[in-house]
Amino acid sequence: MPAPLSHLDVLESEAIHIMREVAAECKNPALLFSGGKDSIVMLRLAEKAFRPGRFPFPLMHVDTEHNFPEVIAFRDRRAAELGERLIVRSVQDSIDRGRIKIRHENESRNVMQTVTLLDAIQEFGFDACFGGARRDEEKARAKERIFSFRDEFGQWDPKNQRPELWDLYNTRVHPGEHMRVFPLSNWTEMDIWQYIAREKLEVPSIYYAHRRDVVWRGGWLPVSHLVQPKAGEEVKNIMVRFRTVGDMSCTCPVESDAATAEAIILETAGSRITERGATRMDDRTSEASMELRKREGYF
């Protein structure tokens, strides 16, 4: 009898099974690909699930235009390497068309993505969207099903979720409704990095330690066209890496000199702060901010 499977093998097989269920049962799925590490892992899982065939779904990115340039370059290159179709829908476009009202150019666009995302889901008639969210990320996510039902307004009702039994997923929706499907639900940040190391996956360079100009605003913020030092603010140039890649105006790097996936695994093992706690200013506003955003239809 072969040796028992490792935890990564079990998680991988579970995710492949989930993706194939969607491919078999949903009419028009899509995979939300941001160029971040979780969605990079999802692409490898999709290769494992569907090669030598093509992916039975397009990739879609909701571009806030506040992304790190390295991540966007990586996104386009990876999609081209895979030979899969990439759809990009733009938050700026939603703003220009008056679907989103902004107060000023540089404010965080995390919340705004929801409008663009839901519009795109409607435009293409997607009935299932893979997302890379993990339950270890955040308290509200910990309560979410792997197959998470969204009503015709794209909304999540946390108190009225379908029971999810064994791995018998109920994928059924009425026209206009859809599913968000999270194949990485049971993965932790540690599992993701272990998998990136094991599979030798390339990730955008900003995940690894590099020197960067930052200013302190209750957390280090990267200096960019969106974050300009204010009078009296000291710009420091320090070794950092990003644990998540989001909106440049509110995604903080952590101080680190980890230059490889293996070094990040060691750092993650010793880390005393959660991924989002360390890096997302927008999650700190209120204890429920992720839950509120999710209810509205966020990723």
């Binding site: 935890h7 339950r135 270890d136 955040e138 308290k139 509200a140 996510r141 910990a142 309560k143 946390p158 108190k159 979720q161 639900s185 049971n186 932790t188 540690m190 204890e287 429920a288 839950e291 509120l292």
Partner: peptide
Amino acid sequence: LTDGLQAEREQGITIDVAYRYFA
């Protein structure tokens, strides 16, 4: 730690199955 929804924290009860991870 396991009470993740706003209503749960406000009322000090647990509403739904929550998944937690440790190694």
